[in-house]
Amino acid sequence: MIPFDLAEPKSLSEAIKLLDPDDATVRPIAGGTALMLMMKAGVFRPQKLVSLRKIESKYSGIVASHDGLRIGAMTTLGVIERSAEVRKHAPVITRTMITLSNVRVRNVATVGGALAHGDPHMDLPPVLMALGATITIVGPKGERSLALEDLFSGYYETTLEKNELIAEVHVPSQGPKKAAYMKVTTGSADDWPALGVAVVMEADGKAIKSARVVVSAATTKATRMKSAEAALAGKTVDDKVLAQAGDAAAEDAEILADVRGSVPYKRELIRVYVRRAVRAAIDGQGAH
């Protein structure tokens, strides 16, 4: 890594002031697990990093209320993994953590970083999107709230301004909803996913009232598969309905080819795994 400067502001507002809306070589760093990779690869060469590790402690921690969870952006994935509140309000998140990267990364990476990075291969964004999470963004002009699905705008791209920071994630309670996340790898088992599929459904037994289906990793960004959702809403799950949902998602997804698979192959994976994820959620199996 080539040399750079490091600032360690004590508050979120101070951090925002240190960021420059026009200078891409100044960036915030939270856990740093993702950013360090880009820096080591020489893909990102910072002049200055603004560390968020010393900002107000209220930005790390989980508060549960009747309608869900408020998770500070600086909360590490490890804290989320071990949180009894998360397990209670959104068990699909807890289950997702088991196969999310590894223990050491989870101990350091933050939820804010996992979202702001815009990396489509991460496991948490599709799950949070399927749960209907919203985020609070703070910038020089104050706060704004955004549905998580509106954060991602492209491959490693978000709608965040360079001097905006995610402060908090609000996750509605899963409640009686059925949910599953499936991570599909095509290299080793611990590889980054070739495909991630998250589904969260209101269902009574096999009768689905509504569904949120999110596909990631195979696509340029974590994406809601609205045609698949429509194919499921109001239907009673059977092989035909599942196939229709899988086919709909496969047709709609904007897929990228990489070392983990070609576009046609990933399309088939989506077709199969949307089906399997819905089935797993209905059967109460949760995560793959």
Binding site: L37, A41, G187, S188, A189, D190, D191, W192, V259
Partner: peptide, 16 residues
Amino acid sequence: VTNASLADYKIPGFHD
């Protein structure tokens, strides 16, 4: 070489 890293060149781990 388009996958010159352990992130993109995978080797067997515990689960494999």
